[in-house]
């Protein structure tokens, strides 16, 4: 094994939550890349047999761009056995932080959204009341309606395909999630007998079919958990 007095830029630690690769945050990015290459080559045998190992990469106080994350990931996964589970950094861009904050904000509206009215929020939207035919509600995040959705609801309007539209009673004229659109033919949402779903449902994009589907609301907790895991 090559010995050096130099401080190591890349250290690998086993923790009770699995393997963590720490990247020094004072050196140049190039030094990390070259040391990673060397380390992986050197320790290759250690990973040789055995099953896939998933690791987390901790970048300390360094901000890694998407491209840099991709590069680091590619280098590590080049071993064929290590899979990068997630990146973690103590820092993020202001834009991202703002986005995150807005994403987590919930706006509550306690009124009926009536014909001709448009309600648009940056985070999630909770409506305590109906969305009437001709009314439009839009959220960057999710839309939750404690009432009947008879008008138009759009979730994930900035492209978030994991957003949902939930309502106690579904008689939508349109549901849109990211770029996917669901249209109903029936337009007489005022009539009680034309309800699409009289029990609480949430609409989300089914990724296999690439279309919007409706599920019983009690599945939403699990959906949100999966979504959160996917996200971080």
């Amino acid at each position: 094994m090559k010995t050096t007095f130099q401080k190591q830029f890349v250290t690998i630690k086993g923790t009770k939550d699995g393997i963590v690769i720490h990247l020094d945050d004072q050196c140049s990015y190039a030094s990390i890349v070259s040391e990673l290459e060397a380390k992986i080559a050197e320790n290759h045998s250690a990973f040789d047999e055995g099953k896939d190992v998933s690791v987390r990469v901790h970048a300390g106080n360094r901000y890694l761009t998407e491209a840099q994350q991709e590069e680091v990931k590619a280098l590590i996964e080049h071993t064929g056995v290590i899979v990068v589970d997630e990146f973690y950094s103590n820092v993020m861009t202001i834009a991202r932080a703002q986005e995150e904050k807005e994403r987590e904000e919930l706006t509550t509206y306690t009124r009926i959204v009536r014909s001709g009215q448009v309600l648009r929020v940056k985070g999630d939207l909770l409506i305590l009341g109906d969305v009437n035919p001709g009314g439009i509600v839009e959220a960057v995040g999710d839309v939750y309606i404690l009432g009947s959705l008879k008008g138009i609801a759009k979730a994930g309007i900035k492209g978030n395909e994991n957003a949902v539209v939930a309502a106690s009673v579904m008689v939508p004229s349109q549901v849109k999630i990211a770029e996917h659109l669901y249209l109903t033919e029936s337009t007489r949402a005022e009539r009680a007998q034309e309800v699409l779903y009289a029990e609480p449902k949430y609409a989300c994009i089914e990724h296999q079919e690439e279309e919007i589907v409706f599920h019983a609301l009690n599945g939403l907790a699990a959906f949100r958990r999966d979504r959160k895991n996917k996200r971080d």
Binding site: R111, R114, S115, G116, G134, G135, R188, E190
Partner: peptide
Amino acid sequence: DTPAVRDADRVIGLLE
């Protein structure tokens, strides 16, 4: 009838 009710809804929104 539906058209009248939709317009009434619009007007109620404005009155509110």
